[in-house]
Every structure is written in C-alpha cells, then in structure tokens.
Amino acid sequence: MTPPIEILLVEDNPSDLKLTLHAFEVHKLTNKIQVARDGEEALDFIFCREAFSDRDITCPPKLILLDLKLPKIDGLEVLKAIRGDPRTSTIPVVMLTSSKEERDIIASYQLGVNSYIVKPVDFDQFTEAARVLGLYWLLLNHPPVVPTPTAAKG
C-alpha cells in the first residue's frame, strides 16, 4: 500500500512543474506529490474517477496547489467543484499562479481558496515560497477530520 498522497499539484506548464517539484525536493518536503496536468485530471483525481477510480475519496490530499490557467477546466472551475462537494469542501486549496490580477485573487477567495500565492520569477524566492508553503500546510496546519460517508450516515 502506497503512502497517502499529501499534495495534489495541478500545473500544466512543464517548466513550472519541474521547478516546483525541484523546490519541494530541495527542501525535502515530501515525495508524496500527485501531479495533474489539467483541470479535468485534477477533478478525476479528487473525485476518484476514471484513472483514479480505485482511490478512496475519504483519504484526500493534505493540500491542493492549483494553477489558475489550465487546459480543459480552469483553476477556478476546479476550486468551485471542490468547494461544491461536502466530501472535498474542507480540503485546503492554495492558488499557486503567475497572475497578480486582482479579479483573479478576489474570485479565488470568493470561491473559498485558503491562500493565494503569486509565483515569483526569481527562483530563489520561488523555492523559498515553496518551502514556507510546505512547512505551513503539511507540518503546522491541522486539517479537519474529513467526515466519512459512514460517519455522515451515522
């Protein structure tokens, strides 16, 4: 049995993907990262559909890092879907994006994002951001106990 996935990283840009993974690797944060390359794949993973149908929805990742601009289904749509389902609505979601647009920030928070982080161009700042991010959400933050369907029934 593979250890549970701690981070779902939704990133379509291969360079950003590599750099993000590198940053986590440098700080030895986790090797339990699941990558989704577009919104659809992200939702399949989260809701245990298609290729991920054997996953257990009651074992959600500790953190979802979500890019805004994504092929097929964009980041805000993904966020909306996550928050719209009681089984996933409490999963911490952090926007990790290049956009500094205010409307993106506002829309994200209105949809219930937990944090919004602009990816710095400077790689040193970028790795620092990744380190702080991982430290906070994986080690310091206490996620709520996810209500299981049985618990919900009971």
Binding site: D16, L19, K100, F123
Partner: peptide, 18 residues
C-alpha cells in the same frame, strides 16, 4: 502577459539557478 510571460522567465531563472 501577467500569467504566461512570467512562466518562461521563471523557467529561465529557475533552471539557471539549478
């Protein structure tokens, strides 16, 4: 510009750093 132009820059900087 905001979203897409930064990504390649980040790649340039990031891989140079690496």
């Amino acid at each position: 510009v905001s979203h897409d132009l930064r990504a390649p820059l980040r790649a340039i900087d990031g891989f140079s750093r690496i």
